[in-house]
Each structure stands twice: as C-alpha cells, then as structure tokens.
Amino acid sequence: MTGAERAVVVHPDADTLARATAARFLLALADAQSLRHPVHVAITGGTIGTQVLAEIGRSDLLGVVDFTGVHVWWIDERFVPTGDPDRNEGQAGEALLARLPIPEENVHRMPSSEEAKDVEAAARAYAEQLARFAPEGALAPELDLVLLGMGPDGHIASLFPGQGTVSITDRAVIGVHDSPKPPPERISLTLPVLNNTRQTWIVVSGAAKAEPVRRALEGADPDDLPVAAAAGRDVTLWLVDAEAAGQG
C-alpha cells in the first residue's frame, strides 16, 4: 500500500485474527527499524487486544525485532491501584512484556491511582512523559504503529460516544471521569496523538461489533462513533474476523 490508504482484512475467526495480527505487528516493527531508531508503538487492552499481545509473545518472528529500540506506550488505562486486574498494563505485562528483552525505561505505563492524586494529575504526568520524546512543537512522539481495539459502542481508547472527547485537540492525554464502562475513571490518549501515526490498526472480533464496523467504514459521525475518526497518516488497517465483518 502506498500513500494514505485504508484496507479491510478479514480473517475466519478470532484465533486466526490474533495470530496473523501478531505476525504482521512484528514484521511492521522490523520494517520500521530498518528506517528509524527508535520506534514508538501504542498498545491496547481488551479481549482481542490482549490475545494479540499473547500471540506476539509466542510468535516465531519475535527475534526479527530489536526490542531494545522499541518504546511502548498505552492508549488508555483504568485509574485504579497498581496491580488491580482491571489495569491494561498488568494484562499486557503478563501476556507479552514480561517475555521481551525490552528496557524498563522504554515501557511507558500510565500512572495508577497510587501514583497520582487524581485522574487529571495522572493525565498531565503522562502528557509530560510523551512530550519528552516529542519533536519541538508537538504533543507527542510520532508513533510508528497504533494497535486499537473497539468497543461494541464504537469507542476507542477511552474516547466514548457522545462525550465530545474526540474533538479535543489541545492536549495529548485526558482524564475521563464518567466512562460508561466501569471503572468510571480512566486516562486516555487523544486523537491528535492516536492519529499522529504512520499506521493505525483497528483489531475487531465478534458479531456484536459488526454494526459499528459497518457504520465506521461508511463514514459515521465520530462523536457518535469515535472509531470512525481513527486514521493513520500512511495506512489505516481494519483487521477483523468474519463475524465482525458481518460474515458470521
């Protein structure tokens, strides 16, 4: 694919989707490392997102990437104590990060409720961390790859329908106080960071997601369906299973 392109790749089931996305992820990082150093990626949680991370850790292609030159960022996080099973970083650590030879300083976890006085302070702290790696005048480093999941309501990260958060452009990170999905307090990257990426991949599985996938691809209003606003500068790739594609 060349230029700013969008493609939809359909896999027969969630397990195949996770394995194929894991292989694609590692090859994309290897390609990026042939051109740039370091590379920056942002990862997600959720069922299929965590399954992809686990498959990355098991992939025969793991050795093609120099993980000492990879920086890992989180797309969003639940504002709960360290070690809480709701935290995305715990799931990612167990599924993948504990298996990688990646320097601890390259793993950029969002603050927990024990590390920041409130969710707004946590968002500011993470924004400051992003800014340290950003070019002059930018909110955050340019990401080589963003690995997004999508909720049944079409939310991405912790940007939910009808809350106006997709229109926030003056901050890299926001505190979310009223997530419709528990826990209510979260930290989330904003669209200016999520879309400042060479490649955006939206990984979706399950029949419950088929309708929002269809609506997003048809150009839904992002305030009603935040995933419709997700776009990479070079490539936007929808990686879905047959059920999410409406073929189940």
Rank of each mutant, 00 (worst) to 15 (best):
M1I: 10
M1W: 02
E5T: 15
P12L: 04
L17E: 13
A18F: 11
R24H: 12
A28S: 11
A32Q: 13
R36D: 14
R36F: 10
R36E: 15
G46S: 04
Q51R: 15
V52A: 08
L53F: 05
A54F: 02
I56Q: 05
D60E: 15
L61Q: 14
L61T: 03
L62G: 11
F67M: 07
W73N: 08
E77W: 08
P81N: 05
T82S: 14
R87K: 06
E94I: 06
E94T: 14
A95E: 09
L96Q: 10
A98C: 12
L100H: 04
V107Q: 12
R109M: 05
R109K: 14
P111L: 05
A116K: 07
D118F: 00
E128H: 05
Q129H: 04
P135I: 01
P135G: 07
P141S: 11
D144R: 11
V146S: 12
V146K: 00
L147T: 03
L159Q: 09
F160M: 09
F160R: 02
T165K: 07
S167Y: 09
R171E: 14
D178R: 14
P182V: 09
P183S: 05
P183M: 06
P183E: 10
E185M: 13
R186V: 06
I187L: 15
S188T: 15
S188N: 04
T190W: 01
V193D: 09
N195S: 10
Q199S: 13
T200A: 15
W201L: 06
I202E: 04
I202Y: 00
S205C: 01
S205L: 00
A208G: 14
K209E: 08
A210H: 06
E211V: 14
E211M: 09
R214A: 15
R215V: 05
A216V: 03
L217I: 12
A220Q: 03
D223M: 02
D224C: 05
L225T: 11
A228W: 04
A231G: 12
G232A: 08
R233P: 03
L237E: 15
D241R: 02
A242S: 14
A242Q: 05
A244S: 12
A244Y: 08
A245E: 01
